[in-house]
Design a binder for these strands. Sequence first.
DNA 1: ACAAAAATCATACATATGTTTCAAACGCGC
DNA 2: GCGCGTTTGAAACATATGTATGATTTTTGT
Lengths: 209, 209
Amino acid sequence: MTTVTAEILETKDRIMDVAERLFAEDGFKATSLRSITQEAEANLAAVNYHFGTKDNLIIEVIRRKLSLINNERISRLSELQESGTPSVEEILDSFFRPAFEYFQDASQVHFLRLLGRTLHESGDFLHQLMVTDWIPLADAYIEALSRAIPEVSREDILWRFHFTMGAMIFTVSKMDMLEESSCGECQINGDFEPAIQKLIQYTSAGFKN
Amino acid sequence: MTTVTAEILETKDRIMDVAERLFAEDGFKATSLRSITQEAEANLAAVNYHFGTKDNLIIEVIRRKLSLINNERISRLSELQESGTPSVEEILDSFFRPAFEYFQDASQVHFLRLLGRTLHESGDFLHQLMVTDWIPLADAYIEALSRAIPEVSREDILWRFHFTMGAMIFTVSKMDMLEESSCGECQINGDFEPAIQKLIQYTSAGFKN
DNA sequence: ACAAAAATCATACATATGTTTCAAACGCGC
DNA sequence: GCGCGTTTGAAACATATGTATGATTTTTGT
């Protein structure tokens, strides 16, 4: 079956959706295939049928949306570079915004959280993702940033890019922390715009010394 | 036995040391008690005897050093505040430095990595640590930062403190990434001073807009 | 309508896990 | 040396896990 019924999602997609959320909430290792298939109303064997192994499942889960985000990043960065040398703010905007706004559906925040968690785990599957998906992207951005602030040494660019990743990842994966208790003022409510603005303001200031 | 033999560590300490490293390397859930006790040359039952449960083990592992770091932070912050209103740089220095330099032994970087990983996991034990150890500390620092830059709204202070945590955590838990491949220039070699300097420079610039 | 392919299902398998149990060994004060 | 609390030891328990296996149902192409 390759045609999609409008009402009911394919088993494969249901599994990926549930896996995405559960991996994000409880972590990769702590999430059992049984809890995934049960909630997805699929058979346990379905995950091995469609994905082979659990490792392959999370790889496909991450890649299906990360590739969209990263393609959008590259696309926007290229567009910026066509009309001159973009500013640090413009570069960072093209990096942050796709991650936040590509999925306006607030439920998709699970994916961002999963991404953040995964970057802090050291599984073998992560290394594969890094090499194929991350390093080329990072190189393009470091190059662009170097041109935007040539007075900053390449070593410092790398440090600050690293810091910036940390700020962004922590923000997306701990967004619920910001919404609760100690920070009643900063509500998100599915509107990421303030978060993006403040993140750009903070990180661009850090970049420009 | 409560007296410590100079040569040989107590079983309890050996278990904690190994657990700290393995939790940091592979994650909490992925690290089995058997792999810990085997490497610590202890019996499997020893962990349950000394710690009760696995959850309790990681709590004790984290707390034994985090409390030292946090006490040092509070101590340095208080000292700063005794002689006037400290600058953002001084405040952040008192926050970062204890985490990096409290353990000059380079092997203790495992603890920092564990701390970073743990903050991105959502176990029940984490919430307990947050309430008792983290929130009071964060409040003190947010208060100090508010006084250092009164022109910045409290909402922005919270956002920027959040970003700063992300930058720091990602740095300590991914320090090996900085040391390899894409960043041949930035070597650490057990000397955290450059990392601290660059982190302070970056985050203080972000704070001061 | 029918046969081939794709997908689903119940179930089994082998293993790994945290935890418990209870006996043996050990350390120390007397 | 002895007795007692503390610590270690080997093994068992109950359960959870990822994966594999065939049979069965559903879908698809013709």
